[in-house]
Computed example of a mutant assay.
Amino acid sequence: MSTVTARRSSDLLRQIVVLSAVTFMLIAAMVGVGLFGGTAVQDLQGGALDSDASYLAPASSAFSIWSVIYIGLIAYAIWQALPGQRTNDRQRALGWLVAVTAVLNGVWLVVAQYATLPLTVVAIVALLVALAITFRRAVSTRSRGDGAIDAILLDGVTGLHLGWVTVATVANTAALLTQSGPESWASAADVLGVVVLIVVGAIGLGIAFASTWRVTPSLAIGWGVFWLGIGRLGGEPSSTVIGVTAMVVAALVVVVPIIVAGLRLIRPSTD
């Protein structure tokens, strides 16, 4: 087999694997919402993953962002399978990585459904690492000529996925610590919650800076932290200080990258 033929076979395999990975993720998601006899995520692990399970759990409305992420991944899977994308250099650089993130997304739901809470933390950290690598690769391979669809379905969707999973990792870890830690930890919940939120804000701004101020990770982080604040201000467990801190962090994480990105767009026209 010639090198060219082998490369084309690898390209076709990549397209099939991406479609298969996203399909697996969607099936796992349907199980995760209680279809096919599965238990809904909020009822798994003794309710540890519900929106009122810890001080760092976002309100239930926050999870609607999954619909946007899933629609984006479905659109990407279909788009990358088109013949015109088969030999695209960015698809070669990112397709396999996107497939890994889709599989790990589904794996988390399977682990949450059938394994233990500590293993869900391991699974979501693995997903977070894979998304960070994928987003970094997306930023480093991006060029002006790649087009709007490419920007939305690769950089945009991956950025949203990364941002939301950053918040979800915090919530998942907090759920584990809440369930397994001593009751005395509750007395320090406000202080710890504020510290964690400040760290999340720093991570969000760090991702924006490292990606030359891409805004999609910041939008997802801001969305999750905003609803975390709503949960603490209007739900249980209640914490005014965590709720207010979350609102401030959410605003900073979203507004700062938008302003900087806007200035970067304006500056070339004024030179």
Rank of each mutant, 00 (worst) to 15 (best):
G231D: 03
V110E: 04
A6N: 02
L44I: 08
T116H: 05
A261C: 05
P217K: 02
V194Y: 08
G262H: 05
W66A: 06
T3L: 07
P58R: 05
S239G: 00
T39S: 06
G38Q: 06
S54A: 15
L128M: 11
V121I: 00
A6R: 03
Q113H: 11
A220V: 12
V18S: 03
V31Q: 07
V111W: 01
A99W: 10
D271I: 14
M25K: 00
V167A: 03
A99Y: 02
W79A: 13
V165Y: 01
W227L: 15
I203R: 08
T120S: 12
L131R: 02
R264Q: 11
Q15A: 15
A208I: 10
D271Y: 01
S64K: 03
T178N: 12
F135C: 09
I259Q: 00
S239M: 00
A210W: 15
E183A: 15
T120N: 13
V165M: 05
S187P: 03
N172F: 00
W79D: 02
G262Q: 07
S10Q: 14
L228F: 10
T173G: 12
W227N: 10
D11K: 00
L219V: 11
S187C: 00
P268S: 06
A81N: 01
G243V: 00
L205Q: 08
D155S: 14
G145T: 12
T270A: 15
E236I: 03
V33G: 12
V256I: 15
I198H: 09
A189C: 04
A171E: 10
E183L: 15
V241W: 11
D155F: 00
V31F: 11
V100E: 07
A168W: 02
T101M: 08
R142L: 14
A77Q: 07
S67E: 05
G204N: 14
V244Y: 03
W213P: 07
I65N: 02
V255A: 15
P83S: 05
V248P: 06
